[in-house]
Every structure is written in C-alpha cells, then in structure tokens.
C-alpha cells in the first residue's frame, strides 16, 4: 500500500476547481477503486458514474491526466510512483457535478437515426445469415457507449456549434453497422450519414479509434468505407440514375441539407470578408406574449406598432454586416 497524490475536479455547471487529495492505493487497483475510496473516506458526495467495474457498461468515462479513459480500466500501475494523477470530467459534454456530465447529446443523436428496418418477407426464426457476413457489423455492436470517442472528436470538442449537425463517431459506426447488416431493408444508410449525420465534417484524424476501449476500428472499418462508398454512389451515373427512380420516401426520411460546400464552419479573418459566415446563428426569438398567452397586437398595450419582429425586438437597423452570417451569393 502506498499513498498517492490525486487532483480531482469538483464543481458543477457554475464552475469548479481541482482539489488535492492524498489517497491510499493498493497493489492491483484501478483509478475507479481510488475514486471509491475517496468517496468512502473523504468525500462522500463526490459524484461519479459507474456500474460494472469491468469495462462492460461504459459508465465510468472520465479524463485521466487529460486522456479520455474508463476509470475502471485504468490500472494504477501504469503511472509512476510519484506521479500526481489528475481526474477531470469529459470536456465535450456539459458538467452536471464533479465527474458526471450530461451525455444526453448522444442519446438524442441515436434517436434521430433511422432504426433497423426488418425485411418484410422474412418471418421471425427464418433469418439466415452467414457468420462471415455478420462479423463486420458485430464489431460495431461491441460498442459499450462510453462516448469517449464522441468526447475526443475535435469536431465537437470545444465546438458546441457543430453539435446540431454532427452525430459523431459512435453514430457513424451505428450507421456502418446497419449498412453492413445482411438483412437490413434500408439501402440509404450512407446517404443518411452524409446528409443528416454530418459525416462530411470528419476529416479522419483517427483520434476516436485511438481512445475506443473496445478497440473498434472506427475510422478504418466504418468511417472510411462509408465515405468511399458515398463518393462512389454520387458519381456513378448508374447509381445516380437509380436514385432518381426511387420514391422520395425511400430516400433519407430526415435529410436536411448537409455541409456540402465546406467541411465544417469556415471562419474568415476579420476584415477579410464582408461577413463572418462561420458565426453562430442568432436564434429566432419568440415574440413577447401577454399573461393570457397572446401576442399584443394592440398598439395601446404594446410598446411598438404591429406584431413583434420575428428577428427579435432588440435589433436596430441598419444592421452591421459583420455580425451576419449570411453571404450574398452574387457578391
């Protein structure tokens, strides 16, 4: 048994700090064991998620010395005896308290992704697939949803503005899994990935693959094949023709336009362009309502004439073009 130096981030959405702790560590323990000892002996209200302590549930994701890791899979013996170990919450997701973050982003993205479509004419019990064909999808189904890959990916790490358009590597492997599923009845998984999951934002840095505790080859086996085949389909005249004769509802159900022009937000240095089209959109503001829930249309009651502006009432005209992210196509 030795006493080791820990720094653990404590706080909540409002802010926090790294606290110093001295904790006993026994031979053969992992970081999560130490967090538990901290809870039991010094900080009973230290918040931390865990379930299986066996690397199977993906609950105990945290950043250990800046690396996204599972607390239960990080052996203490991998650190130097006199090393201070710093434990912080995942950075990409909003902090709830201490080491617990709000990972609902990932569940939301999963909800938006069209589910497995069972083949219409195969009865339960009659599914026949060869092992070699299911193995490719099985690799992706190993995912324990620890969201370390999501946390690592630079497209959303420190870039909240990309979150609406980008589903992240966890969902790319889900797309690939369904794409490679021998009996999935949908054949537009790649298009969906491109059009509504933001596959185009990914520039194959492979950081996600590096942190995956299940060693899923996220980039090589899922993202790259998906990208390649999207390209194939786009430029293959036969496929383009084939796509035209598909009914609209056979194509992506939810297909808002993806970033087809630039891969990711483009920020142009100040003064170089008339407008900054990488700027985050001003959210449309709801009109002011009266206690009965109606908009004040009566000039007598409202402080301005007619209905409230859909652009928000705090805008003064003319607007400074530098604050817009609209780019006039003809200029």
């Amino acid at each position: 048994m030795t006493v080791r130096q820990f720094k653990v981030w404590r706080g909540d959405a409002a802010g926090g700090q790294l606290n110093d702790y001295k904790v006993e560590v026994n031979e053969g323990e992992v970081v999560l064991d130490v967090i538990h000892r901290l809870q039991a002996t010094q900080e009973p209200d230290l918040a931390c998620r865990w379930n299986c302590k066996a690397g199977k549930c993906g609950s105990c994701s945290m950043e250990i010395n800046g690396m996204p890791r599972l607390g239960c899979m990080t052996r203490m013996s991998t650190f130097e005896e006199d090393e201070t170990i710093t434990v912080t919450p995942l950075r990409t997701f909003p902090v709830i308290r201490d080491l617990v973050t709000d990972v609902s982003f990932n569940y939301q993205k999963a909800q938006e992704m069209p589910a497995f479509a069972p083949p219409a004419d195969v009865a339960p019990g009659e599914y026949r697939m060869q092992q070699i064909d299911v193995e490719r999808s099985q690799e992706f189904r190993k995912c324990i949803e620890c969201f370390l890959c999501q946390n690592t990916c630079h497209v959303v790490r420190d870039h909240d503005e990309n979150k609406p358009a980008f589903s992240g590597p966890r969902l790319f492997i889900r797309a690939a899994e369904l794409d490679m599923h021998p009996l999935d009845a949908r054949h537009d998984r790649k298009e969906i990935a491109q059009q509504s999951q933001g596959l185009g934002y990914c520039n194959i840095t492979k950081c996600c693959t590096e942190v995956c505790p299940e060693h899923i080859k996220i980039t090589d086996n899922a993202i790259i094949p998906m990208k390649e085949r999207v390209v194939d389909r786009r430029y293959d005249p036969l496929v383009v023709f084939g796509r035209k004769i598909l009914r609209r509802d056979q194509l992506a159900a939810t297909a808002p336009a993806g970033p087809t022009v630039h891969a990711g937000p483009v920020t142009v240095a100040d003064g170089q362009a008339p407008v900054d089209f990488g700027r985050e959109l001003t959210p449309p503001q709801p009109a002011e309502v009266n206690p009965s829930g109606h908009v004040n249309l009566n000039e007598m009651l409202s402080d301005r004439a007619a209905a409230a502006s859909p652009f928000g009432d705090d805008i003064t005209f003319p607007v400074n073009p530098n604050s817009l992210n609209y780019y006039h196509p003809e200029r």
């Binding site: 909540d12 809870q39 009973p44 209200d45 308290r97």
Partner: peptide, 10 residues
Amino acid sequence: ATGGRRYNPG
C-alpha cells in the same frame, strides 16, 4: 448524508 441534493452518491 453530507452535501446537497444534486448527484450526491452518499
């Protein structure tokens, strides 16, 4: 139990 009501394992 010490602490508040937010995510307090104790």
